[in-house]
Design a protein around this nucleic acid. Sequence first.
DNA 1: GTCTATATAGCGATAGAC
DNA 2: GTCTATCGCTATATAGAC
Lengths: 214, 214
Amino acid sequence: MNAPAAKASAGPGRPKDLEKRAAILEAAKKLFPVHGFDGTSMDVIAAEAGVSKLTVYSHFRDKETLFVAAIEARCSELLPDDLFPTQPRGPIRESLLRIARSFYALVSSEVSISLHRMILADQRNGPELGKMFWQAGPARITETFERFLRNAVASGQLDIPDPPTAARHFLCLLKGTVNMRMLCPGCIPEAAPEHADEHVRSVVEFFLRAYLPR
Amino acid sequence: MNAPAAKASAGPGRPKDLEKRAAILEAAKKLFPVHGFDGTSMDVIAAEAGVSKLTVYSHFRDKETLFVAAIEARCSELLPDDLFPTQPRGPIRESLLRIARSFYALVSSEVSISLHRMILADQRNGPELGKMFWQAGPARITETFERFLRNAVASGQLDIPDPPTAARHFLCLLKGTVNMRMLCPGCIPEAAPEHADEHVRSVVEFFLRAYLPR
DNA sequence: GTCTATATAGCGATAGAC
DNA sequence: GTCTATCGCTATATAGAC
């Protein structure tokens, strides 16, 4: 008899829904990379998010769904569309140094390393997750850099017989130190900031020594 | 009255001990790399070894002890002492190609990748495991190759201002494809045998283009 | 010394109260 | 829609028989 108008007019209420969902996703993004898939329980995620476990299950069907959602969120927020320009401006050495520093800063960040490690560790669903990460990240960056190299070759600033291969080599060299740090944090003394730039410069010099026109 | 001599003379019998321990270790070496630490149960290891679970626990205090023992065993059997000579013989291009092929064959093997992935994924005991692997593997190989490069520079076959850095760069380039395959098996079309040698040759050519005396 | 059977604990997922 | 309490399952590690 007494009208439930106040509730009915608001519809099936879900105003708080979204911010709780966001809190859950944030907790998952924080915990999964650190402790891995098996090492992160749904209870801990719920506690970190400040909600109950069943609230977690109301927003995400199961653990794997939440896991994939967390990874995808991290990926999309890690990869900017304009990491570096494809048209060389000014001296080629300076351009390469700028690009190398941007790329190195991206791949050597703690959050990037955690994400990387998590994808490496969890091959539970075949290579699907890795393929997604690969296409969204490394593949796109390599393609962009390859375009940059081709432009530099066209303008006579570089002399590269095989730009695609050279692009892969360049980025691979930059990421080398990161792979070592992932294996054994603390083994590589070059982890310090001043040594990081030294690493970047050594790669650029190696690259120029091979591909600078003579 | 009836003498238990046959048994008593043999002492507190442990003749079967060693071969069962070997079977357990073999099962652990096979299963841990494939399914990871959490994904490999002691039951499955016992079944694979053909013994009971309690026999496993009688030889190894707990799961972590067995895990570390399995990794150490794999490491020591994967790293030969004489991967390549430190004294260059014949044309430098051929020497580098031989070294590159040996190194690539080592790091790109399935068992090596599995081991690598396992160490990366499980940082449960801090960086100790990674440090052990690093010092036993990559560190030793890099040092050996650095000596090779210095000899080549001394004999005038190469012109390298910074041999330690160049050594790291060379090996890092070779391992690049492997890191990609670890991330996303199947994403890289170069996994095929014929493309593998193409990769090795492209790295050697890049290296020589930079460091061949002019 | 080895095996069968079990104690104990933690996690993923769910039922019912408000 | 959200929370408390719980089921079902699995895995580590152990107790008792041969």
